[in-house]
């Protein structure tokens, strides 16, 4: 009897051990992927710098990777990514934060029940659909409306990307607002503040860094987006002089050229180097977001 009990106990311990290992392995798998990605990016991109100086790679004004001799300056691609991202921010920050405020503070139960799923659906639309919409609908309309030679330009890309990033910003900003304890709101109202005062003087400042995190992560989404910009940004590898110039952001360059670049060629390595740049940029964005959100949690006394 007792021997059986001991045996059972041993089995349970064994099983628990096995589970622990299983899940630890799964958890570490993502770490392995990360290390693998970084390793691949580095080994595949470093050969470029033996042929091209890093400064002329980063700041060179021309991108003719298949010309003879090739010119590989990614400055036009970097500026394009920044221009399009900045433009997208101008679109998605006011709309996203405004939506979050509306849903959280003003909307009635029915409006909320309607708006939240709408935003989630917007977030769930594949980026290629946005791209197609931008290319076939938005670009021609803007072209006629603004009298520009082509609608496929940084402005259109910003607009479409901005719409794409809006759900990210809206739902994260809404989370930030709902993280503000109800007690702050009650304290303010109990002191005779009206809703607007409570919102602007207590809720918004308390949610401020959470909202910044939302904005930064929205930015991360815009920087990394590929399919949409490939279809609507125009694809001209040139430092844009105005918002209405066609541009070729880093992501769409990789997407458009990787399929055709000969494996192991300089062009192939250069595309990996662009990938490395993108990785560093998004890493930086995420680190900043993490720092800010940690500060936010400390401020509200939520702990780490």
């Amino acid at each position: 009897m007792s021997a059986m009990k001991i045996q059972r106990k041993a089995l349970v311990t064994l099983k628990e051990g096995a589970y622990k290992w299983l899940f630890a392995t799964l958890a570490f798998a993502s770490l392995v992927f990360l290390v693998g990605i970084v390793f691949t990016l580095l080994t595949e991109s470093l050969p470029v710098f033996s042929k091209i100086r890093p400064t002329s790679f980063l700041f060179g004004p021309f991108w003719y990777p298949t010309a003879d001799p090739p010119e590989m300056g990614i400055w036009p691609l970097i500026t394009a990514s920044f221009a399009v991202t900045a433009g997208a921010m101008v679109v998605c920050v006011p709309i996203g934060v405004g939506t979050a405020l509306f849903i959280h503070e003003l909307a009635g139960r029915r409006q909320r029940a309607f708006l939240k799923p709408v935003i989630e659906i917007l977030a769930g639309i594949p980026s290629i659909v946005y791209g197609f919409f931008g290319m076939v609908v938005v670009a021609p309309i803007l072209q006629d409306l603004l009298g520009i030679p082509t609608g496929l330009c940084a402005f259109t890309a910003s607009l479409v990307l901005g719409i794409m990033a809006t759900p990210t910003v809206a739902s994260l900003a809404e989370d930030a607002l709902s993280f503000v304890p109800r007690s702050f709101r009650e304290a303010s109202l109990a002191l005779g503040a009206n809703r607007w005062q409570t919102l602007t003087r207590v809720v918004m400042p308390a949610a401020g860094s959470g909202i910044s995190t939302a904005v930064i992560l929205g930015m991360g989404r815009a920087v990394g987006e590929t399919m949409t910009v490939l279809m609507v940004a125009g694809g001209a590898a040139m430092v844009p002089k105005s918002l209405f110039d066609p541009v070729r952001p880093m992501t769409s360059t990789i997407a458009a050229e990787m399929g055709e670049a000969v494996m192991g060629s300089l062009h192939y390595n250069a595309l990996f180097a662009i990938g490395l740049m993108l990785f560093l940029i998004t890493l930086g964005v995420n680190i900043i977001a993490e720092i800010i959100s940690r500060r936010f949690r400390l401020k509200l006394g939520l702990g780490r």
Binding site: S183, E186, A187, L191, G192, R201
Partner: peptide, 23 residues
Amino acid sequence: MVFQKPNPFPKSIYENMSYGLRI
């Protein structure tokens, strides 16, 4: 009104105190 859990705003002591007057 004073609530169950202390609920000062995440602001300075002085800003907490002057809030009711400022609004």
